Amino acid sequence: MTAALAAAAGAVGFSHSSLASPTQANSAVNVAALTMGNSQLSEVTTARIERRQLATRDSSRVELSTTEASKKQASAAAISKARAAKLDATKKLTAQRASALAAAKAASEAAAEKERKSSTRCEMMISGYHITAGFGQGGSRWASVHTGTDFAAPIGTPIRSVMKGVVLSAEFAGPYGRQVRIKHEDGTETWYNHMSKFSVSPGETVYAGDQVGAVGVTGNTTGPHLHFEVRPDGGEPINPIPWLEDTCGLNP
């Protein structure tokens, strides 16, 4: 501004030596500024306006950048929240399914256990056998007629309780060898003989399919087998085959 005014003053021919007084000099400068400095003043004003506009644009850009950043942060937060909610829902669904499966498994196991412990459930005493002697059969191997049915099988083959009952005895019984006697709920006794070992003890409750011993050759026998007897109310023996068919629904 000062340079512009000085230039203007020079342009009209003023100098310190030609002025009558300082007051006259100032007046001349003012007149020069008013008459000759309009273009320079316009440039200064324009520059100031441009600076203001530039500052306004910069401010707008900063505000826009801040707004965009805020939008991006909000969007990222929303996406993160949605993912967390989806993950939480998935976890809850997985937990519900696991709980339902566990409940179904527990119910199935409870039903199977109830069925296993049913007093009417029956299971064959032995597997992998063949019958070598029947009930009432005579011969030199017995003092009288045969009192049971012989199921021949390899030594060590598991012998199982035919149905639910209480073990009356598990002991060596002379010609019967190692013998287990079980009393069932209707009073019928089943005898398992010639075993190589015991798997139960007197007083123990067993269920259909529970192992009571294993095939052996103890007592009066010529080979490994299960000698199986059925005695209603603990009395005289009856033919085991019809009993297994009629009472237990088994087909030996």
Rank of each mutant, 00 (worst) to 15 (best):
T157Q: 11
V212I: 15
G165T: 01
M195T: 11
I131V: 15
T222F: 08
F135V: 10
Q179G: 00
I182V: 15
V206H: 11
Q137C: 00
I155K: 03
T222W: 06
T222Q: 07
W142C: 11
V206I: 15
H146L: 12
Q179F: 04
A152Y: 07
T132R: 00
I182L: 13
P158A: 09
F172L: 06
G139K: 14
T157I: 10
T222V: 05
T221M: 03
A152P: 09
V217G: 05
G138K: 12
G223K: 02
T205Y: 04
G148A: 13
V166N: 00
H225R: 06
Q211N: 06
F228T: 06
A133G: 15
I131G: 13
T222L: 13
G203D: 09
V200M: 12
G174Y: 14
Y176E: 11
V212F: 03
F172C: 03
A170T: 07
P175V: 10
V162N: 10
A170G: 04
F172S: 11
H227R: 07
F135P: 04
G203S: 12
A153C: 14
E185I: 10
F135H: 12
R141I: 14
K183W: 01
G138E: 07
N193K: 03
Y129M: 11
T190A: 07
S201T: 12
S140H: 12
T188A: 03
P175Q: 03
G138R: 13
K197F: 02
Q137D: 04
E204I: 05
D150I: 04
A208Y: 11
R178E: 08
Y192E: 06
G136W: 09
R141V: 12
M163G: 15
H146A: 08
T188N: 13
K183S: 08
Q211W: 07
T147I: 07
S199F: 06
A214V: 02
V162P: 13
N193Q: 04
P202Q: 14
N220L: 15
Y176I: 05
L226W: 04
G177D: 10
F135D: 09
S199T: 06
G174P: 03
S199V: 01
G216Y: 08
E185D: 14
Q137R: 08
A143N: 11
K197H: 01
Q211P: 03
G134M: 13
S140C: 01
D210W: 00
V145T: 15
V200R: 11
G177Y: 06
S140V: 13
R181A: 14
A133E: 08
A133H: 04
Q137T: 14
Q211C: 01
R178D: 08
